[in-house]
Nucleic acid binder design. Structure first.
Lengths: 188, 188
DNA sequence: GTCTATAGTCAGATAGAC
DNA sequence: GTCTATCTGACTATAGAC
């Protein structure tokens, strides 16, 4: 209910009174359910990510060859990111969080599982690239166009199709294919 | 003087009093030089980026073949990003800024010139990829490892060398080479 | 140009009635 | 569990002395 608020304005930009208005409760009622603002914020953000990362992890653990699972994962994360703007912004706020304890807790719940899944998948590809770096690159390639969504519209060369999930996913896959995909007919 | 403050805590996380303490002025003195907090913030951030993007643009406009200039640009932006942590964080705050007018002004001064330079460079490569998407991908590949710096240390597979600029730059270049670089002996 | 002092508003958090 | 009322402190911004 209040996730869009935190997604838009971040921790410092949202007051307990704002959350109270959005949930049609009073500040005092919120303090009955949460010990303080940090507790409320953590609960909201972690709840927002629950389920989403497990859906993507399941894609990654499918029966297909690694490259095909990677393609499906890329399409899945692009679609998720495109369909829920709060998702990307909440991740951005996590990365920027200036409170170390809070950022550590969020990282654990928000990034870890999915990162491990992608890391293990790209390791299977045997591409020669460092799996850790490669996993980070893939997340960067997928999320960066969405992180820039509100600013890149002013850049030269922009066309509305650059916002379409299918176009973004295809671009990422095309960019990675020649570096990562083993030749089709190759056998051990 | 107060750029590190805004880099760490963002617009909402830094008060006029904080800036006053950092500059050893009083809030009232700051209001003599700046009309309001927005004016102060914009001045600080834009000043922080001046010069930096022109240095990189000059690399891009060198005499070498396009792919070599792209390699040098990647190394240059990686080194800049690695040497000045404020740089990355201020860019992240710009992307997340919830005030549309402020974000528009910052985008103009912070992103535009460099984006245009990279866009035109990758267009020269004739790689077959959309130049606009490709420019965004390159910025994503370079900056994402630094945006995740504080959180990815907790991820499995992490080694300290993953923070080294040379390693990050090499990874990005290696990842892009087979997709973007024309065969060496090719002539028109 | 920089100061002290302060106006006016909003923040996080709590006490106590129901 | 949720409310009204309120405490305490921090915030942006300004007035006016020097």
């Amino acid at each position: 209910m209040s996730a869009p608020l935190f997604a838009k304005e971040g921790y410092d930009g949202v007051s307990i009174r704002d959350v109270a208005a959005a949930t049609r409760l009073t500040p005092a009622a919120l303090y009955y359910h949460f010990s303080d603002k940090d507790d409320l914020y953590l609960s909201v953000v972690i709840h927002e990510f629950r389920g989403k990362s497990t859906v993507l992890s399941n894609i990654i653990k499918g029966p297909e060859p690694p490259w095909e699972r990677l393609e499906k994962f890329i399409e899945g994360l692009v679609n998720l990111t495109a369909s829920d703007q709060n998702f990307t912004r909440l991740m951005q706020w996590v990365k920027l969080d200036s409170d170390e304890v809070r950022r550590h807790k969020l990282t654990e719940h928000v990034f870890s599982d999915l990162f491990v899944s992608v890391h293990d998948l790209v390791a299977e590809l045997n591409s020669g690239h460092d799996a850790y770096m490669l996993a980070i690159s893939i997340f960067g390639l997928i999320t960066f166009p969405f992180e820039l969504m509100t600013t890149r519209k002013f850049m030269p060369g922009y066309r509305p199709e650059h916002d379409k999930p299918a176009v973004i996913a295809k671009h990422v896959i095309d960019l990675l294919r020649s570096s990562l995909k083993k030749a089709d007919g190759k056998t051990g």
